[in-house]
Amino acid sequence: MQARPRDPATMISTETDILAAAEGWRRDGRRVALATVIETWGSAPRPVGSHLVIDQEGNFLGSVSGGCVEGAVITEALDVIEAGQPRVIEFGVADETAWQVGLSCGGRIRIFLERID
């Protein structure tokens, strides 16, 4: 998963800037998925409404967990970019998968993943 060279877009931080970047990426012809934190329990690292935008090469911008589960979200996002159907994914210490990718803070998050068409 190669990151693109740093450009001004990688410096942005607010959720709304990320939506602007998603629109720009799509307009540039990149295939794009958007991840949104829709629910959190316990001490989740990023608030509800946080976004992560991902392209078909695995480039991403934003954050849904402060780095804990981004890798897994990106993998799912690549699936969504291919399949087109939105899906909801969940991460937390209660999951079997938590031993591989989970939130060390003990929280749980639910993420909505959708393709920008």
Binding site: T16, L19, A20, A22, E23, R26, R27, L34, E114, R115, I116, D117
Partner: peptide
């Protein structure tokens, strides 16, 4: 999300 919906959301914010 449809690209035009995203564009409208961004336009409202702008």
């Amino acid at each position: 999300m449809r690209a035009d919906t995203l564009a409208q959301l961004n336009a409202e914010r702008a």
